[in-house]
Amino acid sequence: MQNIEHQVGELVVTQRKIDGYISANKLTKAYQKQTGKYRNPNQWFDKDRINEFLELLSSKTGLEVYELVQKKGEGKNCETWIHPKLAVSFATWLSPEFEMMVSEWVELWLFAGQAPATQEPVALHPYQRVWYERLRLFEQNTTLPKGQWCIFEEIGKLMRKLEAKNILLYDRSTIDISVGRAWCTWLRQNKFDTDFEQYTHHYPDRRGEQLANVYPYDLLGKFHQWLEDTYIPDKFPEYVRQFVNPEECKLISEALGCEIKPVNKRLKSNNDSRNNE
């Protein structure tokens, strides 16, 4: 059996054997069944203290925040699994009784010889992990209207071109947002109607769901010409040089055929920040 089933009154709360993660959905339902009170988990996740705890736990375990809080399925079938240490904090929010109960579950799980979830070192740069997780969420959750395209998909070609040259941008850089803003500015300057349809873009971190434009196919050729002739030579260097060191600036300049001059002070990546904590 891959799961541990904890009987709480009439309901069963599931805990995964492999990593100790506990179903927050079932824990909340068990609390409601026992007390008659409804607690909305989103109110707990929105607290500043919890966000700080998530960052600390992420630093300690080496797991990204979206790995500490894992959502499986969609809509009403979506289930949220939370790290065992996070589950104790969540149970504390519910009630002292649930805090005691979940603490015992985690202790028993640890005593049984399991270990908290960790990951083997990943060769991918942190930015790549975020990028590919966004791609996975896009493929799972997004169906664009027929005859329309979005910048996130199109900018993937630029990302692959950079990766082929072993140029890996940091997780703080979000090229598609930079491109989208510059593209809309260009459209307005050239008297195009910018009242576009939008789709819901999913992020693997606290940004959650954000709206992004979709564009008709008749603008796709103009976009690629603008990207090649205007954005990459004129806009991209100013944006990307914030996130790369002088050697990486040189590599990108050679890959794209446009000069990118480094800034004197390089912004820290998430990993840099964590190492200094």
Rank of each mutant, 00 (worst) to 15 (best):
R160K: 13
K71G: 01
I260H: 00
Q148S: 06
Q43S: 13
G9S: 09
F98D: 07
L251S: 12
E153N: 01
V102A: 05
G20N: 06
W183H: 06
L110W: 12
V263E: 11
A112K: 09
G75Q: 06
E163Y: 15
Q225C: 14
N271T: 08
W81L: 07
F192L: 07
E79W: 01
T185S: 12
H125V: 06
Y127M: 10
E97I: 03
R129I: 05
E120D: 12
N213I: 04
A24H: 01
Y199C: 04
D272V: 08
Q34W: 00
I155K: 10
G208W: 07
K161F: 09
D193T: 11
A182P: 02
T142K: 02
V263S: 05
R206S: 09
Q148D: 03
L144Q: 02
L158E: 01
Y231P: 01
W226N: 08
Y66K: 08
T185F: 03
N213F: 08
R188S: 10
K191G: 01
D48N: 05
W226G: 14
L219W: 10
E139W: 02
V102I: 09
P237H: 10
E79G: 00
Y31M: 00
W109Q: 01
N40S: 05
W131N: 03
L86S: 02
V244T: 05
D46I: 04
Q114I: 00
K17P: 02
H224Q: 05
G208K: 01
E197K: 15
L137Q: 10
K191A: 14
